[in-house]
């Protein structure tokens, strides 16, 4: 039996960012959102561990009220319970880590905290480690593979210079990569069932975190301007290839990069 706490983020779809054409500011309200890609794999991994060893999967999401959409998906995939901590304010990762740590202490015990290695939108990749630091738990980051045996978790981490095989006693924090699995696609009956399941809401006061203070303020977020020349040459007609390649070589010589 293994009790797993999974974290999911209601993330921006970065491929569809809404950008103010004048100021280049990002319009968050108009940008579509989804469950984080790595978060979904963390949930999938939790469900697989539960299927193998028995147990329970609890999912926690900190985000706006609309994030309950992804919690429906979480239920459809097979989670046992889902919690939303609704907040509209910007929270830095430290605040989110404190919320997870408090939730863990109040709603535990859990054997494992599973998270995505990094969020799909802000991609800092530090939340798991911050939670582990607050709870004094071991962490295995960016895992490509997880095995649970004899009350120990073994996982392979893909880091900058190679692969690290770690082993940690439970409870532990593990964060996963995109490569760890292919998440299941819920069936229609699962989606219908999910609609009847209750999304639990907790406030920061419920977690005794009324005085939560951010350590970082995001003061300005602006899209980069793409200032490329965008000179396009058409070589779809094979007889043009010779000419187009000559042109390209000339351009590159003018640029001084050949």
């Amino acid at each position: 039996m293994v009790k797993i706490l999974v974290g999911v983020k209601y993330s921006l779809r970065v491929e569809n960012l809404a950008i103010d054409p004048k100021t280049k500011a990002i319009i968050l309200d108009e940008t579509p959102k989804k469950m984080g890609d790595m978060d979904k794999r963390a949930l999938e991994e939790a469900l697989r561990l539960k299927e193998k060893h028995g147990g329970e999967v609890t999912v926690l999401c900190v985000g706006p009220k609309e994030a309950n959409k992804i919690l429906l998906e979480v239920y459809a995939m097979g989670a046992d319970s889902a919690f939303l901590i609704p907040t509209n304010d910007y929270l830095d990762t430290f605040s989110v880590a404190k919320i997870f740590a408090k939730f863990y202490e109040k709603n535990g015990p859990f054997d494992l905290i599973l998270l995505g290695g990094a969020s799909t939108d802000s991609f800092t990749g530090v939340l798991g480690a911050r939670i582990a630091g607050l709870l004094n738990l071991p962490i295995i980051p960016f895992a490509n593979q997880i095995v649970l045996e004899d009350l120990k978790i073994k996982a392979e981490s893909a880091l900058d210079d190679g692969k690290y095989k770690f082993s940690a006693p439970l409870p532990a924090v593990v964060t996963v990569t995109l490569e760890i699995n292919e998440p299941r696609i819920p069936k229609l009956k699962d989606i219908l069932r999910a609609k009847r399941q209750k999304i639990n809401e907790l406030s920061l006061s419920d977690l005794e975190l009324d005085d939560l203070k951010v350590t970082i303020n995001m003061t300005d977020v602006r899209a980069y301007e793409e200032k490329r020349k965008q000179i396009i040459l058409d070589a779809t007609d094979p007889s043009k290839i010779d000419e187009v390649v000559d042109k390209l070589i000339n351009y590159l010589r003018e640029e001084g990069v050949l």
């Binding site: 490329r228 396009i232 040459l233 058409d234 094979p238 043009k240 351009y251």
Partner: peptide, 9 residues
């Protein structure tokens, strides 16, 4: 859109 020179082909 990210290219200075693009060849379609």
């Amino acid at each position: 859109k990210f290219a200075d020179y693009g060849i379609v082909g």
